[in-house]
Nucleic acid binder design. Structure first.
Lengths: 203, 203
DNA sequence: TTTTGACTAAAATATTAAAAAAGTCAGAAA
DNA sequence: TTTCTGACTTTTTTAATATTTTAGTCAAAA
């Protein structure tokens, strides 16, 4: 990694700190620049606009997330344990970076095509990784389902769906409290247990 | 049913028609009154305020929904078939009454305590009914899971979660198109298949 | 008991001015 | 040449206000 890239990463670090504390909408480029004791045009030297800085942040968070689940992944474990472990990692990240989600702020951040595409691609990567997990489990004879890519997609969407339900229950852009959060994790794990059993049985 | 109640139901009918077409937010009490060729105070004779008229609409829709799934429910069918049937009914209603969902309009309709309580109660009824479905399947020896109430809750939330994912994919308050809608239904059914198998297997 | 025209009070909307933030650029510093 | 900055312009948000629309009321009629 060259020096230039290092600086870029530092800016992303600074942005993340601000975003976590105040949310994307309430953070200005000036805030970030001041935190780093540089001028605003410096930021624009590394990022064409705020949107691309946000994309940098998103990429970083996902990258760290992928690193961690890959590091923790042990194909020798039973499938259920593997998935439980990823649920814990995912939810730790979810909690830590919750403020990034809050759409309040940038008007239509989620409607932006570039960001939508990026998120789509990252979701694709995650899907691929999970397809690999299910494939390995199939190779080990732990499950009997054919289309692992399809299964991975269904599984991930179900988990995310439960997560969204949890957020809606809490009430829009309120931070879900510890209790609601644990209930969500439990539900995700309960679904995982039934799901894994369902993949095991053929008939 | 007395004449008074009949009039009340007619008002709800009129409100539903408007709501379906323009959404709750864009519909005024005057609009509804004019459609029915009565004066606005007439509406207020039957409903203390707009909120209670909306509650009346919600109750009606859920009532019709429950009537239909109960009518279609045949305990002798395999569990999977029963659940498939309810998915179809649910999604038909979902599509028909989608405009009721669009929160755009009445600012914090979903944050209102009375409406929240009502929806909670109705969701509770649905949960109970599904717990009954799972209990019956258990009695028939089709599944082996103990806590049917818990299973019902998990199942329903997973389905709703997939639905929410579909809506988010389409993009906020845009009506999901036929294709996205069918994809959603398919996912819900695929999950159901795996879920039912998962309940069948003990280990 | 049910309905209404004419009313008030509250809320949504449109308008505008002021402030804040995004983004640019010529040129300095490394 | 690459990286950075002060001073600038343009675009967006925000705040303040006037205007319209809508919810909800009430005395009285059907």
């Amino acid at each position: 990694m060259i020096v230039a890239d290092k600086k870029r990463e530092q800016i992303i670090d600074g942005a993340i700190k601000r975003f976590i504390h105040f949310g994307i909408g309430k953070t200005t480029m000036n805030d970030i620049a001041e935190d780093l004791s540089v001028s605003k045009p410096s930021l624009y030297y590394y990022f064409p606009d705020k949107k691309h800085l946000i994309i940098g942040v998103i990429e970083r968070v996902f990258h760290d997330f992928f690193e961690l689940i890959k590091k923790k992944y042990n194909p020798d474990q039973p499938l259920e344990e593997i998935l439980f472990s990823t649920i814990d990692v995912r939810n730790t990240f979810f909690q830590k970076y919750y403020m990034l989600r809050i759409t309040e702020g940038i008007p239509d951040l989620l409607n932006d095509d570039v960001i939508k595409g990026k998120l789509q691609a990252l979701k694709g990567s995650e899907k691929e990784f999970f397809a690999e997990i299910f494939s390995q489990a199939k190779t080990k004879g732990e499950i009997e389902h054919e289309d692992t890519a399809h299964v991975a997609e269904l599984y991930l969407e179900s988990l995310m769906g439960l997560c969204t339900m949890c957020i809606m229950e809490t009430g829009k852009d309120l931070f879900p409290d510890k209790k609601a959060f644990n209930r969500m994790t439990l539900k995700q794990k309960n679904l995982t247990t039934i799901f894994v059993r369902g993949l095991r049985c053929t008939d």
